[in-house]
Amino acid sequence: MGMSVTISAAGAQDAEQILKLQYLCYQSEAELYGDYSIEPLVQTLADLTEELGRGHALVARLGDEVVASVRGEADETGTVTIAHLIVHPRLRRHGLGGRLLDAIEAHFAGDPAPAAKRFQLRAGHRSEGNLRLYRKKGYAAVGTREVGPRLTLVTLEKAA
């Protein structure tokens, strides 16, 4: 490739590229669960732009192309919910997802208001690659919630 991937804060100007990447990345999840109506595949640009304004998002770029992204949002109790960790299919299994997860945690760990006490994320019960990454990064399952006949979400947490 010849270029290095850089990680930086995402802004509203990145919303369209993030949405397109999200749509591409969640195709495999939709296929895994036999459900193409999952939230990441039906989210609108307006909804994503509003979500980016509420929390903090990071993008990884290869040149000008957004090739990975993650979003996080802290609540008043100090729980940081991390969501939509996506990596372009051609760049998976090279550590980029782990780098983004570390970077979003570092952002919230250094953010004084409110102080991060725990990090929380969710993954589908069949999403073995995602679950393996989260366990490797110190997350442990704390609960499950059935959201449909084919999908159970696993909630994972770790202390900040």
Rank of each mutant, 00 (worst) to 15 (best):
N130T: 12
F119A: 05
R145Q: 13
G98R: 14
R93I: 00
Q43R: 15
Y36R: 06
L101S: 13
S69G: 01
A115H: 05
L121H: 12
R54V: 14
V142M: 00
L121Y: 10
E51N: 15
V59P: 07
A57G: 14
G110I: 09
P89V: 11
E50D: 07
V147A: 05
G55A: 12
I38A: 09
D102N: 11
L62E: 09
I38H: 06
G63T: 04
E105C: 13
R126V: 02
P89N: 06
T144E: 03
E39H: 12
L133Y: 10
L52Q: 02
G98C: 14
D102R: 14
A109T: 06
P114W: 11
H84V: 04
R61Q: 10
A141G: 00
K117Q: 03
T144D: 04
N130C: 12
A140Q: 10
L45R: 08
D102T: 13
A46L: 13
S69D: 01
E39T: 08
K137C: 09
G129A: 04
R54F: 07
Y134S: 12
H94K: 11
E51M: 13
A46I: 01
R71C: 14
N130K: 07
T152G: 13
R93M: 01
T155M: 07
R122G: 07
L101Q: 13
R135S: 10
H125N: 15
A60F: 00
R99V: 12
D64I: 03
R54Y: 06
Q120K: 11
K117Y: 01
A68W: 01
E146P: 14
V154S: 12
A57S: 15
L48W: 05
R54D: 08
F108M: 06
V154L: 06
Y139A: 12
R54C: 12
G78A: 12
A68I: 08
Y139P: 09
G98L: 03
P149W: 04
A113P: 01
Y134P: 15
S37H: 11
E50R: 13
K117A: 04
K137M: 06
T152L: 11
G129R: 03
Y36G: 08
G124W: 07
G97S: 11
G72H: 05
G97R: 11
G143Y: 13
V67G: 08
F119I: 02
V142C: 01
E105Q: 13
E65M: 13
N130M: 06
E39N: 09
R145P: 06
A106P: 05
G72I: 06
L48C: 10
V147E: 01
A83E: 09
R145E: 14
L151V: 09
E65G: 10
T81L: 14
V66K: 05
F119S: 02
D64E: 15
P149L: 11
D111I: 03
G97V: 06
G148L: 14
I38P: 06
G129Y: 01
L91S: 08
V66S: 08
